[in-house]
């Protein structure tokens, strides 16, 4: 009975594998950008080390960024940013979720999509929905997304002194070309 049950489970798993596309979309050089505002001044930091994976079969969207790769153009300010985000203890900003809207994989049009899942930064995880675009071009997926991150939601104290403080709302933008890769 036990053997029979295990056999059925194994066959079930095998059948599931067969109907998959066996393709995932991956990048390790996506672009991530934030825009911060302080009184009378705006600055931008960015990184080209955004790692991401989109798996339509599993309906999995998984991205992460090593926050120590963010550069704002001023080394001292970068170090302040890393300290503010406590990069030593929480080195990654991560999103893991799934597409909550439909996406036609056979279309090459730019399509509006939404993903819902858990976003983690500074060791704090929140459930969020992010809207963006996806476009399939050959074996590539072009992704763009923008959203607002409220520092308070993630227990991040805006750096500054007295009234001269970084705005709590940070504009985040990501852009990536994900290449198709066979599932291993």
């Amino acid at each position: 009975m036990n053997i029979l049950l295990s056999l059925i489970v194994s066959l079930f798993c095998g059948v599931c594998e067969d109907v998959r596309q066996d393709v995932v979309y991956i990048t390790d050089s996506g672009h991530a950008e934030f825009t911060s505002r302080v009184p009378l001044h705006t600055f931008t930091g960015s990184s080209d080390h955004l790692h991401g994976l989109i798996d339509f079969d599993e309906n999995l969207v998984d991205f992460y960024l090593d926050l120590s790769t963010l550069k704002s153009g001023i080394g001292r300010r970068d170090r302040d940013i890393y300290r503010t985000l406590n990069v030593d203890d929480h080195p990654f900003a991560e999103f893991t979720g799934s597409l909550s809207s439909s996406f036609d994989i056979n279309s090459s049009e730019i399509q509006q999509v939404a993903v819902r899942g858990e976003f983690t930064i500074h060791g704090v995880t929140r459930e969020i929905t992010i809207e963006g675009t996806l476009q399939k071009q050959g074996g590539e997926l072009h992704l763009t997304a923008e959203w607002i991150l409220d520092l308070e939601d993630y227990d991040i104290e805006p750096p500054g002194i007295l009234f001269y403080r970084v705005d709590e709302e940070q504009e985040l933008r990501i852009e990536a070309i994900l290449n198709s890769s066979s599932r291993e």
């Binding site: 790692h51 994976l53 999995l60 090593d66 120590s68 080195p91 893991t96």
Partner: peptide
């Protein structure tokens, strides 16, 4: 299925 999390610099310098 998730991507393994890897630091860009596995041995970062001490800050400041």
């Amino acid at each position: 299925a998730q991507l393994p999390r890897e630091r860009a610099d596995a041995d970062p310098p001490v800050d400041r």
